[in-house]
Amino acid sequence: MKIIIIGGGRVVYFLAKLFVSKGHHPVIVSQDPAECERLSREVKALVLCGDGSHPPVLEAAGAREAEAVLAITLRDQDNLVACQLAAKMFGVPRTLALVNDPDNLEVFRQLGIHVAFSTTHIIATLIEQQAGFDEIVNLMPLAQGKVTVSEVVLHAGLPAVGRSLQELGMPPGSLIGTVIRGEAVLVPRGPDRLTEGDRLIILTTPESYAPAMRCLLGDEA
């Protein structure tokens, strides 16, 4: 797959290396001549020095044949314009943009960027949701943060231990998808009871996350 990466910094180097190792063909576009020179020595990728939001540069990077454009500069306006031009002028089927100001996440989606992600938002969500709860061991946002998958370990003394799913009454917008009990993996139904040591895989919407955790973990969540 041909992927155009627009941006600078070490993250571009590591991404390009990763893509190459997976058999993809990255093309890097960076504004910094010194960095371009270093990257062209370090990575088996075409490196172009220029402004990724300037149409002739995108074209030279092979935007007409590219399957994806990933814009990860530190400036939202440059990421937005590069992705829009790639999609609209050159028909790139997938555009992904880093959003530095988390407020712009929704804006980017409204303006037609296929995938917009904010590292600020991801880190803040992880810290907010995970801080203080030893029971929540794993957390992963899906569908651009519209669904969260969490793993919760039921320690002794938690309100959910010994209760059935029916009794528990998980809030709307949340679901206990799987219970891992020792070696066994169960897909629980209403009458099934939770026991100490169960690892629950839970799907929630962002709004129902806190109520769902309160339901399982009690007031400490």
């Binding site: 306006q77 314009v81 409204q110």
Partner: peptide
Amino acid sequence: EEDNVNLMVAQVGQKV
């Protein structure tokens, strides 16, 4: 001064 600022702001103004 920057084209991309203007293009982004114009679209945000229009669509948002």
